[in-house]
């Protein structure tokens, strides 16, 4: 067992967990933060993406014990006092989500992209989103939403 202390969405969290606990499992099963989804077992789909110390990572491929002391932002913690992040707003406006399952990971991945690139081109957006599989939207409206969010940030 390991004691892991993290700051998740601004809240201090400390738990005794099994060593093998993945971050996705800590979030979903132990902390009931079920907005982070698990869509595959090969680290490909990206539904589980969260920010660890500001960088997007796949929480299904990360031991919680490995990031002891880190700051984590999940989809539940992105909106600020009820005000949606620009990418959340833009996805709604551009119909960049359908079933919503890939959306949390997609959003968190885009947040990281927009930190790194102010005005990404279509191709830069599409390349960045390689790690997030969406089966519903065909990505087109997601790309449009990312561009709009970039312009508003």
């Amino acid at each position: 067992m390991q004691r892991v202390s993290l700051v998740i969405n601004g809240n201090k969290v400390s738990r005794e967990i099994e060593d093998r606990t993945l971050l996705s499992s800590l979030l979903r099963d132990i902390l009931s933060l079920t907005g982070t989804h698990v869509g595959c077992d090969t680290s490909q789909c990206g539904a589980c993406v969260v920010l660890v110390d500001g960088k997007s990572v796949k929480s299904c491929t990360l031991f919680a014990a490995d990031i002891d002391g880190s700051k984590i932002i999940t989809i539940e913690g992105l909106a600020n006092n009820g005000k949606l992040h620009p990418i959340q707003e833009a996805l709604k406006k551009h119909h960049g989500l359908q079933c919503g399952f890939c959306t949390p990971g997609m959003v968190m991945s885009v947040v990281d992209l927009l930190k790194n690139k102010k005005n990404p081109s279509d191709q830069e957006i599409r390349d960045w989103l390689k790690g997030n599989i969406c089966r519903c939207t065909g990505y087109q409206n997601i790309v449009a939403a990312v561009k709009e969010a970039a312009s508003k940030m």
Binding site: V57, S109, W128, G131
Partner: peptide, 9 residues
């Protein structure tokens, strides 16, 4: 290499 999240870890 891989995707953005792989490159971050």
């Amino acid at each position: 290499i891989g995707d953005a999240q792989v490159r971050n870890r």
